[in-house]
Write a protein that binds this DNA or RNA. Structure first.
Lengths: 172, 172
DNA sequence: TTTAATTTTCAATACATTTTGAAAGTTCAG
DNA sequence: CTGAACTTTCAAAATGTATTGAAAATTAAA
């Protein structure tokens, strides 16, 4: 397989996988394109490579910047903006975890707190099941919250080295 | 807040969160409903509680069964099928991780292997960036693969106890 | 300034997914 | 068997999401 084919394949597949991750197809494709580009690209090049409109390119590039996965790069002597992606995949993963935690888990925790304050007689089976379930989910969420925070703070090296060994050891 | 309100709120919110997780709204709502129901429910009750059609209820109940989150329950003396959800949220999380790993990561790994075999001169900057990036993603994926396998095998107690302590300790 | 290059916005449109409901299929009590 | 209870299927409709493209806004070179 030559580079051109491989690149096209990677962009298509990364786009497909992205949709499983709350990232839309185009956004993931742009990300893929920038991941394998040695140099920053301009909006025009992104549009051409992926055959997408200016508006679409612009919107998804901004979204990638919001997610902290892509940065604007200024090239001396160039008027227009260029974009480049963080290439260290561990940093990418950490960034995604961080963003999703913010957008999802952090929103859910207060809701659960509120729901756990439902009133009613706990001898009522329906009430008991409800409060037990919510309580269960709450504990899980709070645990996940702490664990993810630690992961986000943890540096790459530690994550790669220790966590693996740890999981490995615990499983034996 | 009384039980009826709280239940409605939980179903709505769980449905909303579900969509961030590759699970459609109705599927997540049915799951929520079953999570807080003391007893198994029939299709008819699910349809009524959520105001959805028969076909929709049927399709999403089957999907929940596919994901291993809901089980058919036979009630003696009853002709029709009843459904109940696994209430232990740690088991639910493990089941979701397991399924998503199967559907996503396990599909990606062979693709990456293929892409890493791109031919071309590594002194070419474009080739080098491509192979380096793919290699990087491959390592990450294989690591994630192992780690998730361990997580899936790990029992709840270990997961709750040790992992937390571990992350905590490593962060200090 | 002015003006041309570039970026951003957003209503209209295209595309994708979900839901419905009625028909077909299945199961089982009588 | 037969028929009523129940479940599944699936084409059509509704809903939701992404994309386009042209116009408006912004930027910076002249």
């Amino acid at each position: 397989m030559n580079l051109t084919e491989a690149k096209a394949r990677f962009i298509a597949d990364w786009g497909r996988f992205g949709t499983n991750w709350g990232i839309n197809r185009t956004m993931a494709q742009i990300h893929a394109l920038l991941l394998v580009s040695p140099d920053p690209l301009g909006a025009e090049e992104v549009m051409e490579e992926l055959s997408i409109s200016r508006g679409n390119a612009n919107m998804n590039l901004r979204e990638l910047i919001d997610w902290g996965l892509v940065q604007k790069v200024l090239i001396p002597g160039e008027r227009r903006e260029f974009f480049s992606a963080e290439k260290d995949i561990w940093k990418v993963a950490r960034q995604i975890v961080k963003e999703r935690k913010k957008r999802e888990l952090d929103q859910m925790i207060p809701v659960l707190k509120e729901l756990s304050e439902v009133d009613g007689d706990r001898r009522d089976k329906a009430v008991k099941t409800f409060t037990d379930t919510i309580q269960n989910i709450r504990k899980f969420s709070e645990q996940a919250d702490k664990t993810l925070d630690t992961m986000i703070r943890a540096d790459e090296h530690w994550f790669l080295g220790s966590l693996v060994k740890l999981f490995g050891a615990a499983a034996r």
